[in-house]
Design a protein around this nucleic acid. Sequence first.
DNA 1: TTGTAGGCGTTATCAG
DNA 2: CTGATAACGCCTACAA
Lengths: 343, 343
Amino acid sequence: MQNNIEDVAKLAGVSIATVSRTFKHPDLVASKTKNKVVSAAKELDFSISRSASVFQTGQTYRIAMLNNDRSSSWFNAEIYEGLNQVFQPAGYDIAFYQILSSNERHKFFENLPIRRNVDAVIVASFNISRDEAPRLHSMNVPIAGINAIPEDAFSVSISIDDVEAMQLITKHLISIGHRDIVFIDFPSSPKTVGMLHFSATLRAKGFKRACKDARINPVIIDIPNDDHIVDSALAKLFALDHMPTAICCQQDSLAVPLMTCLRQFGYRIPEDISIVGFDDIGYASQVGLTTVHQNPKEMGATIAERVLHLLNGENEKVSVKHEMLDSQIVFRGSTAPPRTENK
Amino acid sequence: MQNNIEDVAKLAGVSIATVSRTFKHPDLVASKTKNKVVSAAKELDFSISRSASVFQTGQTYRIAMLNNDRSSSWFNAEIYEGLNQVFQPAGYDIAFYQILSSNERHKFFENLPIRRNVDAVIVASFNISRDEAPRLHSMNVPIAGINAIPEDAFSVSISIDDVEAMQLITKHLISIGHRDIVFIDFPSSPKTVGMLHFSATLRAKGFKRACKDARINPVIIDIPNDDHIVDSALAKLFALDHMPTAICCQQDSLAVPLMTCLRQFGYRIPEDISIVGFDDIGYASQVGLTTVHQNPKEMGATIAERVLHLLNGENEKVSVKHEMLDSQIVFRGSTAPPRTENK
DNA sequence: TTGTAGGCGTTATCAG
DNA sequence: CTGATAACGCCTACAA
């Protein structure tokens, strides 16, 4: 049904080796021969079968991306896009492996279904444990980390400093006069204890540090990370004795709708309440949210390039094994000095 | 370096055929033998090489997803997640092909690099032309459509009725008394003329129909679909003689931040302005946006299941070739009768 | 229930 | 620059 390399060879009047070379090493073939082969291929609607060549070369041209969240989360979707941008042209496919429960996690590392079936692994935003790292490395392929720890578990890695970033943006609030600040956190649910996500913990830590430095008592509101984060957050905020003058959100995806809802209830932002987020998702700039910028798409693309170098044996091109990106705060209209200053 | 099936066979004291069967057809192997093989495999850290078995069977276990937008757009990320949810457990990887320019598009269909290299193609939210359809089908694999036309170009397809949905939600505004409604559209830019996206066109059409039926002059604002949609929209709105009493947005991703910004400028929603969107992204419920619900994740999963049936030759299980989903409007707090009614 | 052996389509080696 | 041929690792008749 599908024409193979032999059919093309026959039609072009050359050997199959020449056909193969025409596509894999065009420079080794006389251009006249090349033309014959190419037009024969076109006539027969022939393309090289990746499965066959991949099998022959021993590579798989598949990359695994490991994560414990939905592939459609802002962070993952951006990472995926960055990876794909680099890997796709190089002929690699990316398989997204979602590991939700610690049970799934255990099974995954136990059986390692990707062994021999991927050329590299990208671990995105989770911390792998002391015994999982060697397990991954036993596959003998590059293991890359994006916002993942511990760094020394990876062939290459890139991350932002969640602690520092949240500390800095909290300091910003403190600098302009806020002392009544609430941090809204998504703590680990029982289901996710010991699970992969850790940025949350680090960001809370950064908030606490900034408060401690300023001798402020850190107020932290815990809400479940589900579809009702805004309702939960509002409920807990309204339950306080008084509204804080500033709110620090774990993520923009909470801060953005929270802004809308607070305004709906008559709170002016930033006059009555300042609010900051974390991530700099597209909406943040549109609604004027002060936040910490990160660019997961670029992180994905960067890591993909490094991994590609490793796969091509160009290890010397990977000058940086572990890159820690600087925190960038983006100041927009959602923060201002507290009104109480005017008293 | 990596142990192959022969090593396992040797260690387990069986033939390679038995090892192969242990993994592919466990029921054909005596459980005692199976145990030997499994433990030998575990000892040698062996897994079946997908590349090799895939090659042998002639399948590729890769699925192509074609689209003309970023893979990280809400719609695409959701579709991908739905597809992956079904395809991943079945052993298929999904490769996302982004076709941005009509030049890329032409090249893609000309060379069809995925020929022989994918087992199925998923075409998401674009219309393929009369000559592209047969080209795709010449690959002899299932071609599936999600929000794509023409329906008869696909082996299976699923879509929502963009025209009807936008018509209905516009009617809702009209029913509660609005006659001064603006539709904010992202028309085709010169770059994307003849390109893949068509929902935009259909939604605008639905709006116009509803207006026509009510003998209202449709007011349509065109803005470029870039990173500044909210600014662009606001600018054009403020440029009107007067604010409309209701705004119809092409997508929630415009409506959500627009709500925030309008509130910031003192407009009360829904008292001063009603606003509706389209998609029902996560934020829509959080900020209380009346909108048209669609669930691309589910659409992806549904199509993936149908495609899987086709791939398994279970054609009889695919009872519905082309499914048109009902439009569902979700009424939330962003719409109310216009104030002018009170006059 | 298990073993033998041929073949899947390509690439790489080596000779010409 | 081109051709012949041996792998690559697994799967599946078919035979035992």
